[in-house]
Amino acid sequence: MEYNYDDVGVESLNDETPQLCQILYSDEYKRLMGTLLAMMKKKEYSERALALVERGIEKLASHYTLWNYRYNIVVNLKKSLIEELDWCETIALENEKNYQIWNYRQMIIEKIIESQAYPAHREYPVMNAMLEEDLKNHHVWLYRKWLVERFELYQDAKEIEFVNKCIEIDIRNNSAWTHRFFLMSNGNPIFQEEVQYVKEKIGQIPQNPSSWNYLLGLYKHYHQPIEQLEPFCLELADIKADKIKCSYALEMLARIYQPAKAVEVYKSLQHYDPIRTNYWNYKITSLSSTL
């Protein structure tokens, strides 16, 4: 439907006085955003405002004030919140790096929950479509964590299945490992199974910081002694035979051996991971200060 906005007026974006760092907007953008700012000022909550906000957000999804405005219009006009989520989906797919969409989606879902149940699984298609584009999309993974927390999906079979699949697709996807840690550390304690799982993954690909950080994280979270990992690490970093498949195994050994026996291992790390020579040096210095 075509609406008329002739009565609204157009606010000037920024070009009245000589400005620094001015953005050279197109005339079309100036007219669109200028009209929106004018309507916002008058707090106009109407169908025509909704239609124009849609165009505004399509032009610039990071315009946080427009999202606020849209929310107020939707609530005031009592629009269908489910339809709002569907609309939001199309915007998300076109704006991979956007912050506002996901917060807006949460607000709409919270609003829905005030009066009716909302099935969390309804959120999977949009997240999957987004992750298909970029398996490490930070915003989507954040949103997924919110969803898990909000709907208590820590033990949900689909969730763990999903994360398994992501790691299968890309064993180096740290976002997937982080999500796995999030599920495991807040759900049922299953320390032994997880250690087994991550050891297998490290066995496949030793030089993977994501899996090593996960392993170390598990031991810390469950307060387990890392000394248990010595034989496992020695398989990947046989210090005596100088057969080093993996610098992270060496680092873990240094951790296990500190203080006294760690010096040699840190020296070896200076050879196998030379960009961090200063850091390994610092580790050696801190060892001697605690001796």
Partner: peptide, 21 residues
């Protein structure tokens, strides 16, 4: 950028103008 302004592709920063400065 300071004097002539930012080309139109910086319209993406319309909600971050103090950052451009």
């Amino acid at each position: 950028n300071l004097i002539q302004g930012f080309p139109a592709r910086y319209t993406s920063q319309d909600a971050s103008q103090p950052w451009l400065i």
